[in-house]
Nucleic acid binder design. Structure first.
Length: 418
RNA sequence: CGGGGUGUAGCAUAAUGGUAGUGUACGCGGUUUGGGACCGUGUGGCCCGGGUUCGAUUCCCGGCAUCCCGACCA
């Protein structure tokens, strides 16, 4: 992508209506646009990051046999009434509207009910089980108070998966596989070290549920963690008994702020019973399906990554989610000879399939470097008149600041990657 | 939903009971060119409604928006 063609502009000033570091940097760098409190448009750069995060999660979900689909945002009132969750007293984040016909509809804050109900069309026998589905979808939640930028919005992208099993054993096997898939996903996004499978309140169905909490100062949750044993307990269920059960000593637990990036739930057979999702056993018995649900906050993850890795100059993306792999910064490109030469390097990168953002603008170097730092692409490659004469390219690693000098050929072998 | 703060140009800000100044961004001309350079010039603005007043961007009331703290987050 030629930066001169990118319609987004960077901002030197900090927006006055944002306090959260993630929102400030993402807005300043032109990744997102604030539409209203807790609602952000994804601009071209932001979309690329979101797609990168999604792709990692997609690969891991596919790998454990989960099938991707997309559910609708409009939902039936009748369905939620059946499970007692239409009422605003029970679920206080509903957005609701009315069709021209007069029928009330809800906007998706979760997809548990509709997808469980939908499965009645596809699951009727034990032979049809198990089924694992997932989607990336916008969730709409009428939060009383949006805050922390991308971390807690009213409209956000979530990956939600649902499992439909015959037995508890089958369910547990998938549940564990999903747990591993999540850990691999977070590892790939660069926060494996700091992300904990956390014991949290299990709600109505089980004693504990599992959350995936990433240590992050901007997070809203408090957890007690044990770094060696890699065990974390949410403050809400932290107790002497809980510690004993998990084999840790309360005094050895470190209290940290965390952001919930994922959550997995075991519903048992209750959910299917409420919705009316039954299958025939071999002997003809009607049995409720054993269900589970599994979420990852995609856009929240984007915010968490900014919060965790950004420095005073701007965003620092983990390579796996960066909108581009290299940022080719051309200097003296107003000189036609230099420009043609740098254009050639840009084209060569593209031909080799390297995701490259090319700063071809006629600006002063300082401005281009400042923008590059703000955007946070992992490698900045400068191509200038001097580079052309000396035949070696300055390559700066955004995260560490390490500088190396490579020949043109080395550039391609290094970044074309295998 | 309770408490507090703030609404002036794309963004950030200043002053003011008599229609508003600056920075940045943007347009034009010029000097610059390895860390957000500079000179000249130009475009562009008081959240909405009501009240007080000869006159309100300014004061008062209400609304809306937004931020923060708390509550909430099955």
């Amino acid at each position: 992508m030629r930066q001169s063609q990118l319609f987004t502009k960077t901002l030197k000033e900090v927006p006055s209506d944002e306090e959260a570091k993630n929102a400030i940097l993402l807005i300043r760098a032109g990744y997102i646009h604030k539409e209203m409190a807790g609602v952000y448009q994804l601009l071209p750069l932001g979309l690329r990051v979101v797609e990168k995060i999604k792709q990692i999660v997609r690969e891991e979900m596919n790998a454990i046999g989960t099938q991707e689909m997309i559910a609708t945002n409009l939902q039936r009132k009748e369905l939620w009434e059946r499970t007692g969750r239409w009422s605003d007293q029970v679920v206080d984040v509903w957005f609701k509207s009315t069709l021209k016909t007069g029928a009330e509809v809800g906007f998706a804050w979760s997809h548990e009910e509709p997808l469980a109900d939908m499965m009645k069309n596809h699951i009727s026998s034990y032979k049809d089980l198990p089924v694992y589905i997932y989607q990336f979808q916008n969730k709409l939640r009428n939060e009383l108070r949006a805050k922390s930028g991308m971390m807690r919005g009213r409209e956000f992208i979530m990956k939600d998966a649902y499992s439909f099993c015959r037995s508890e054993e089958d369910h547990t096997a998938y549940y564990e596989a999903c747990k591993e898939a999540y850990l691999r996903s977070f590892e790939r996004m660069g926060v494996g070290e700091d992300t904990y499978v956390t014991f949290a309140d299990g709600g109505a169905f089980t004693q504990y549920s599992h959350e995936f909490q990433t240590v992050c100062d901007a997070g809203e949750d408090l957890c007690y963690i044990n770094r060696e044993k890699k065990i974390a307990i949410n403050e809400e269920v932290f107790s002497a008994e809980a510690c004993k059960e998990l084999g840790v000593i309360p005094e050895e637990m470190e209290k940290v702020k965390t952001a919930e990036v994922g959550n997995i739930f075991n519903f048992g057979r209750q959910k299917a019973e409420d919705v009316g999702l039954f299958y025939d056993e071999e002997n003809g018995d009607k049995t409720a399906v054993w269900m589970g649900s599994y979420g990852i906050g995609i856009t929240r993850m984007m915010g968490v990554l900014v919060e965790k890795f950004a420095d005073e100059k701007g965003i620092v993306w983990p390579e796996s989610v960066s909108p581009y792999k290299v940022h080719l910064v051309g200097l003296q490109t107003d000189d036609a000879q230099i420009r043609d030469w740098v254009d050639g390097i840009y084209t060569a990168f593209q031909r080799r399939g390297v995701e490259v953002l090319y700063d071809d603008r006629y600006l002063r170097p300082g401005q281009k470097f400042a923008d590059a730092d703000l955007l946070g692409v992992p490698y900045r490659i400068v191509a200038s008149k001097k580079t052309k004469e000396e035949g070696r390219f300055e390559v700066v690693h955004r995260a560490s600041g390490d500088v190396q000098y490579l020949s043109e050929e080395e550039l391609y072998t290094t970044f074309a990657g295998t």
